[in-house]
């Protein structure tokens, strides 16, 4: 869950250090992007591909919308999380037990979107210099390491955007999310984070 809701980092003049990250992200008020998610499992012959749209508005509103193969919308607005699924030609509220875990993850993601990687006690961040630079988040606790081995955010060296998020899981599984058509600080409808449409 952590993985797919990771934000898109952006900032011209990316200097590859934590202060640069914080400074860059503090200038971002909104993000919209298209994403492709590839789930790799040992028992799959080929990655399971999902696509959708991502929206963010500072400081913590999110819209994570899957359009294929399953329609699913996750909204975070005013600190509240709502999930919707497409059933019988209409969106209906997802009442699954994962909602509480999602809410916790959303809080962490909102923190990361503001550049506060060190405030998150669940993961230990490290910054790998290079072209492109990468942020690696390693679970701090044994329990979480059973589920996630690491999260790697690959930054675009030219634009400062995160081009890829890779979540490594046990048993050779992974989730890779690629962002495209990224638009920053553009106006978003006030209902983007409130209504599933």
């Amino acid at each position: 869950m952590v993985i797919m809701t990771m934000p898109v980092l952006y900032g011209a003049g990316w200097a590859g250090n934590w202060e640069s990250i914080r400074q860059t992200m503090s200038q971002i008020h909104s993000i919209s992007a298209i994403f492709t998610q590839k789930k790799n499992l040992r028992i799959l012959a080929r990655p399971l591909v999902s696509t959708g749209r991502f929206y963010y508005h500072a400081p913590r509103d999110l819209r994570w919308e899957y359009t294929a193969p399953i329609k699913n919308v996750l909204l975070v607005h005013g600190g509240k999380v709502a999930m919707y699924i497409w059933v019988k030609d209409a969106f209906t509220r997802d009442e699954g037990p994962q909602i509480e875990a999602t809410r916790i993850v959303m809080e962490q993601i909102a923190s990361w979107l503001r550049g506060n990687f060190h405030d998150n006690r669940a993961f230990i961040p490290s910054l790998t210099q290079g072209n492109p630079p990468r942020i690696i988040l390693t679970p701090a606790h044994h329990g979480l390491r059973k589920l996630i081995k690491s999260i790697t955010l690959t930054l675009s060296g030219t634009s400062g955007a995160i081009s890829t998020i890779e979540i490594r899981e046990p048993q050779g599984s992974s989730t890779v999310i690629e962002f495209s058509h990224i638009a920053l600080n553009t106006p978003l409808s006030g209902t983007t984070f409130e209504k599933v449409r």
Binding site: L48, W64, I70, N72
Partner: peptide
């Protein structure tokens, strides 16, 4: 609630592997 289910089965051997995923993977 929605999920993605991956099932691998060998019927004669009476074996099933099932992986249940959230939509987010």
């Amino acid at each position: 609630s929605s999920f993605i289910g991956v099932t691998v089965a060998d019927v004669p051997a009476d074996r099933i592997r099932a992986t249940l995923l959230s939509v987010e993977g």
